[in-house]
């Protein structure tokens, strides 16, 4: 997935995270994270963002994220939404994730 513009998703509400993704031509993933729980969960949040981008095939992007105590599933959702917006892509890919 190629990032072609600025895409943003999320809010500054508690339990949410704002993720902004911008183009970063052939320079890999550059990640800037601010979090209220940086010391305890910073590395985990970074890993989740990087893994999510990898799953989407995003190889080059500047990612700025401001976390307000989001769960991993929220971090994933916001990263995906921001990436699709930044790629101007609406051909969403959904995996079967039923676990009930």
């Amino acid at each position: 997935m190629e990032i072609v513009t600025v895409g943003k998703a999320g809010t500054v509400e508690s339990s949410d995270i704002i993720v902004m993704i911008e183009p970063n031509e052939k320079k890999g993933i550059e990640l800037h994270l601010e979090s209220q729980v940086m010391q305890q969960f910073g590395a985990q949040i970074e890993n989740v963002i990087r893994d999510t981008l990898k799953d989407l095939g995003v190889e080059n992007a500047v990612v700025s994220a401001t976390d307000k105590g989001a769960l991993d599933c929220t971090v994933i959702a916001r990263t995906k939404a921001a990436a699709y917006r930044a790629a101007k892509c609406t051909d969403y890919k959904w995996n079967f994730g039923g676990n009930r």
Partner: peptide, 22 residues
């Protein structure tokens, strides 16, 4: 609409709500 859809999908496939009907 797109961000909410990602969020609900992600919650449903990740979080456990016990025996609640979803």
């Amino acid at each position: 609409k797109d961000t909410a859809r990602f969020l609900v999908y992600s919650a449903l496939t990740t979080l456990h709500y016990g025996k609640k009907e979803l």
